[in-house]
């Protein structure tokens, strides 16, 4: 197990290095630079070309790409994400709170969605093809196929405008305590939960149905082992394993920001920050957020692998 962790850890670090390099070059070759897109047509109209060039030089936008790449890598080693191009503010300051908020939303969502998704899977296992399962899986498919912004707008229309029990949009600040922020965001949480239940429920249901048709469940059934014990002790862990990698990726995608939900509810998360940074060509912020997303994906993957190897002894070397 230790060697597995070390091996996977090393692999994860190598992956991260490659991803960081990829992120750097992918973002640096974006058309346009921070200055150009931060100026309106009015401003470009009035600014003499030499002033534009001087300001570009001030912002370091005229340095060769290799030099900037080495600077980027050097910064990473010192945990320095750099500063924004226009405001010269530390990127870490800009990214920290939105990242915290996205993680909180993801954590709350998963905490509430996972039990429900498991319940759906168990219902499916108990009653495959019968009314309950059909209803539940039908709802899950609908939940999965409706885009989040539609769910969100629908929830707003119903629970904020028509029957105003929840706020339509989030007016809490980015750095409010999480309790304040989440209390201001019930509809955003519900929207992500609906999507998560649909997604995770589908994965777990498929896994559960497959496991319930397996030889060992039949053997246990024919041995008269109580149903609850078959479901909980035998089938559930086995059903979770194949979906774990997908679920980990999903969790990572939650953390790295559900842009749509953040846009619809103005939730101060990392996804909206990314969109803002991309449109403003704030390359360093884009890089930091992409890097955070990469770290999320890689570490959740690592966790999933460790989880799988805990649950499935076959993946541990004998």
């Amino acid at each position: 197990m230790i060697s597995l962790i070390l091996r996977r850890g090393a692999l994860s670090l190598a992956t991260l290095f490659l991803l960081a390099t990829f992120i750097f070059f992918a973002t640096e070759v974006l058309p346009g630079d921070a200055l150009d897109v931060s100026l309106s047509a009015d401003e470009v109209a009035m600014m003499p070309p030499e002033v534009l060039a001087r300001r570009k030089a001030e912002l370091g936008l005229d340095r060769p790409i290799l030099e900037r790449y080495l600077g980027f890598l050097g910064g990473l080693l010192k945990f320095d994400l750099g500063r924004t191009i226009i405001t010269r503010a530390p990127v870490a300051d800009i990214v920290a709170m939105p990242l915290r908020n996205s993680m909180a939303l993801a954590a709350v969502t998963l905490l509430l969605a996972l039990p429900v998704a498991l319940g759906i899977a168990m219902a499916a296992a108990q009653a495959k093809g019968r009314g309950l399962d059909n209803a539940v899986s039908g709802a899950a498919i609908i939940g999965y196929s409706i885009p989040e912004f539609v769910t969100g707008l629908l929830l707003i229309a119903v629970f904020a405008v028509w029957w105003p029990i929840f706020p339509a949009t989030i007016t809490a600040s980015t750095d409010d305590p999480l309790s304040v922020l989440l209390a201001a965001a019930p509809l955003a949480v519900i929207t992500t939960i609906i999507g998560s239940i649909a997604y995770l429920g589908r994965i777990l249901r498929v896994g559960m149905i497959e496991v319930m048709a397996s030889d060992f469940v039949e053997r246990l059934h024919l041995s008269g082992i109580p149903r609850w014990r078959i479901l909980l002790v035998h089938a559930l862990p086995a059903a979770v394993i194949p979906g774990l990698s997908a679920a980990a990726l999903y969790a990572a995608s939650l953390v790295s920001g559900i842009v749509v939900v953040e846009m619809v509810f103005a939730y101060p998360g990392i996804g909206a920050e990314l969109v803002r940074a991309v449109t403003r060509r704030e390359v360093h912020v884009v890089q930091a957020i992409a890097l955070a997303a990469a770290i999320c994906v890689v570490s959740f993957n690592l966790l999933a692998d460790l989880g799988i190897s805990t649950l499935d002894p076959r993946t541990r070397s004998a």
Binding site: S214, D215, F216, E218, R219, L220, H221, L222, S223, G224, I225, V233, H234, P237, A238, I241, L311, D312, P313, R314
Partner: peptide, 20 residues
């Protein structure tokens, strides 16, 4: 089942729970 009548299935590997 299990007490009065029991069964030995064909594939012993898949008939045992792999994670226990």
């Amino acid at each position: 089942r299990g007490r009065d009548v029991a069964m030995v299935p064909q594939h012993p590997l898949s008939s045992l729970t792999f994670h226990l």
